[in-house]
Nucleic acid binder design. Structure first.
Length: 293
DNA sequence: AAGCGAACCTGGCTGC
DNA sequence: TGCAGCCAGGTTCGCT
């Protein structure tokens, strides 16, 4: 599920519930997700105030009053559900539902004030870790991450230099979190479609022989920023409506122009092509061979 | 060393 | 209805 826009959507949903609140109790319902939980996980969280909930690439990072940072990654299927204070409603059904533990509910954060935040992850590709806040940058998951695609650095010249000399396809280079951190399978397909670039083109070809960026490099940088920020905006509006942080794709999937649209007409202006599905490094790529070169 | 494929794990959907 | 097979938004490991 979660690429950068979904993680940012989750962050925005959880922040008003969690920031400034104390963690009264934390339930850890199994010893591991993708990796083992850190030693004394619940003890190190309980009693701490969650000062701020931030994001780095696809990672949520919560600053705690203890000086530690809680790192959370949602893997493929991780999602958070917010259960508001049961006393805020008189409906018995709600109260009953609020007390239920569902399959794959792995962590429950009980917050000061009565709200609960539940982490559910069927496939358990997600994980959580605790590190001293001032050592966050050296954490093994955070250390190797590349630039934030919505930061100020990303432009055509930077893309060209990041990809210089690479024979790997653009698709794989854009998925490489050590270069640009936050893109996943969906938004890579979307950005390449918007930029009119083939996912199979060698990444190094974003530079001309002169060493200058290919004219389409700026198009690609713009497409990346646009598709991510549009998805973040769409997620934000859904959150306001539902007060949920489940990061579901319902809000943006109708705006996909290539992803999961095999056999449909290409939507790029003037193009009469059809979206195809191919497999690159074991993952589906959706693109239009007629306008993506 | 870059660049692949496999592995991790569960659930949902398709087709026989 | 049952069941096998394929697919899924991510990351890491191990082998060329």
């Amino acid at each position: 599920m979660p690429e950068l826009p979904e993680v940012e959507t989750v962050r925005r949903g959880l922040a008003p519930i969690m920031e400034g609140r104390r963690l009264i109790r934390v339930e850890q319902r199994r010893p591991d997700l993708r990796f083992p939980f850190p030693a004394r996980f619940t003890e190190r969280l309980e009693g701490q105030t969650l000062i701020a909930l931030g994001r780095r690439a696809k990672y949520l990072v919560a600053d705690l009053s203890s000086g530690e940072a809680l790192i959370m990654h949602l893997g493929m299927s991780g999602r958070f559900t917010i259960i508001e204070d049961g006393q805020s409603t008189l409906q018995g059904e709600f109260v009953h539902q609020a007390g239920r533990i569902a399959a794959h509910d792995h962590v429950v954060f009980h917050l000061e004030g009565g709200a609960r935040v539940i982490y559910n992850d069927a496939r358990r590709f997600g994980f959580m870790d605790l590190v001293p806040r001032d050592a966050l940058a050296e954490n093994r998951h955070i250390k190797g991450l590349g630039i934030e695609p919505l930061g100020n650095e990303l432009d055509g010249a930077l893309l060209a230099s990041l990809f210089a000399g690479k024979k790997t396809p653009l698709k794989a280079a854009l998925l490489d979190q050590s270069l640009i951190a936050g893109l996943g399978n969906i938004y890579v397909c979307e950005a390449l479609h918007r930029a009119g670039l083939s996912p199979q083109r060698a990444a190094g070809k974003l530079s001309l022989k002169s060493g200058k960026p290919h004219p389409k490099a700026d198009l690609l940088a713009t497409a990346i920023r646009d598709v991510l920020s549009e998805a973040v905006e769409a997620g934000g509006s859904t959150l306001r409506d539902y007060a949920q942080a489940d990061g579901s794709l319902g809000y943006f999937q109708h705006a996909f122009r290539a992803y999961d649209r095999e056999g449909e007409a290409c939507s790029n202006p003037g193009c009469t092509g059809t979206i195809r599905r191919i497999v690159q490094s074991g993952r589906s790529t959706f693109y239009c061979a007629s306008c993506q070169k």
